[in-house]
Design a protein around this nucleic acid. Sequence first.
DNA 1: AGCTTATAGAAAATGTTTTTCTATAAGGCG
DNA 2: CGCCTTATAGAAAAACATTTTCTATAAGCT
Lengths: 139, 139
Amino acid sequence: MDLETVKSKLHAMNFRLTQERELVLRTLMESGEMFTAMQLYDRVKEQYNKVGLTTVYRLFEVLTKLRLVTPFLIDGEIYYTFCQGGHHHHFVCLDCHRVKNIYGCEMDTRDFADLGKVEYHRMDLFGHCENCQGSVQPC
Amino acid sequence: MDLETVKSKLHAMNFRLTQERELVLRTLMESGEMFTAMQLYDRVKEQYNKVGLTTVYRLFEVLTKLRLVTPFLIDGEIYYTFCQGGHHHHFVCLDCHRVKNIYGCEMDTRDFADLGKVEYHRMDLFGHCENCQGSVQPC
DNA sequence: AGCTTATAGAAAATGTTTTTCTATAAGGCG
DNA sequence: CGCCTTATAGAAAAACATTTTCTATAAGCT
């Protein structure tokens, strides 16, 4: 998904794509990584030396509403990764925190109708990506 | 899993099963629900009027180390549910926060070897359980 | 029973997230 | 293009969640 698509989704909900949000969004989308609010703030800061922490928190809030971001809980910390459209699962590298999307979910939630009415599901794999395997220093 | 089994697992790691921990653990295990630290503290308090919040936090910490508890991130809040032994997936009721375990995972992580080395995975279904469907007031 | 040491719990400290407030700029409209 | 309305930025404060500290207690081994 490109920035323009995100922009139109924001506009559709009466949110604005400010210069600050664009910088943060770019950093998030281009990285392929997941970040805590503080980590993304630091990353943007070192690249552009702009944008406040509050702005990052508020962008996560907005993107969560639009389901453009997926949260992960790892070691008690909340990470967010940019969420390409369409249902998919995730492979998360525990070293570099890069996220790969896995498409082609074959699950039929009707198989679980005896448990209740399934609204949604998620599946996440955790491990070490090709780049990080065997390397002393994760990429 | 019963309390005695948990007790022995605690002892094996040189942790003690105090009266306070036993009350909290009982409440957690018997409920089948997931709780935030504060919620479990409140529940134990109203039942027994004992046990401090710090104790609940510390018990979650210990149980997490022993992998006897699984954390969930829902609406920015961290919930914990007691974790029966053995690999399984979850069905979480978004209304009453009861958790049902789903055994019989057929996934072969080798199918994803091209993504990296998979250490573990989890799958969670979210929806409305039989009891909560259609009821005005969730059970 | 006595001894060692993990734990309880209150209080303080820490860290994270949200709110408040004012200036600014996004973007719609004429 | 310039004006107008209103969402947003960001600093500071507040609120909230979690961890640490410290001392008394009790778990559980010998």
